[in-house]
Simulated scan of single mutants.
Amino acid sequence: MPKPLDPKCQLCAKLPTAKAKVLHGTNGDGCWNPKVCHNRRSFYRRRTDDNSAQLDAITVEPPAKYVAVLYLYKEPGDKPLHALGAELWLGQQPICRLEPIHCFGLTAGKIRTYTDQVLQAFASQYAISLYQYKDMFEISPTHCPVRPCPLNPDL
């Protein structure tokens, strides 16, 4: 089995020789070896060029399907929900967004009702059928985009 490529050498091969000697020579991290580094740098440069030249790239259009995604701003575990937002995607592009709202004082039942209303609004706006969210992402409340926010009073 061949030896795996060294990522450090791959990055070094992209640098000019003078800069590589400064970074990796005696004043740098000390890994520069004049007996092997010139050949190795050449090998890595040619290998990268050869591999990219041998691969053909194709594109296949992914299926365009409507999906709803729910964003929950909360701490991991059994912690209260800080805020929530949603998006409607068609294929690989978001097409409609519900701006996030704070969930202060909302019970689990009211949050469930609200998220169901969001699905119904997406469905009626685009004349489609949506029964559930395709995915839910939990995001740390420190990334809450709602302003003003008690977690980010300076912003």
Rank of each mutant, 00 (worst) to 15 (best):
G28H: 14
R97A: 04
I58D: 10
R47H: 11
C31A: 13
L84C: 06
K74G: 01
L84K: 11
T48R: 14
N51C: 11
E87T: 03
D49L: 10
C31I: 07
V69Y: 14
C96H: 11
T26I: 09
T26P: 12
Y66D: 09
L84P: 02
W89L: 03
K74E: 01
A86N: 04
P63K: 12
L98Q: 11
P76L: 12
R45Q: 14
Y71E: 12
P80Y: 06
A57V: 05
A83T: 03
D78C: 02
V60Q: 13
G30A: 06
K65M: 12
R45Y: 02
A83P: 01
Y71L: 14
D50S: 11
C96W: 09
G28S: 13
A57S: 12
A53V: 01
D49M: 05
R47K: 15
L84D: 00
L84S: 04
L70E: 10
H38P: 05
N51F: 14
V36M: 08
Q93V: 02
C31P: 03
Q93S: 01
T59S: 15
R45D: 04
L81F: 04
N27Y: 09
Y73S: 02
A86W: 02
P94M: 08
Q54G: 10
Y73L: 01
D50F: 10
N51S: 14
P62V: 01
F43L: 13
R40Q: 14
K65I: 08
V69S: 12
E61N: 07
Y66W: 15
L84Y: 14
V67S: 14
V60W: 10
T26D: 15
L84Q: 05
A57M: 08
D50Y: 11
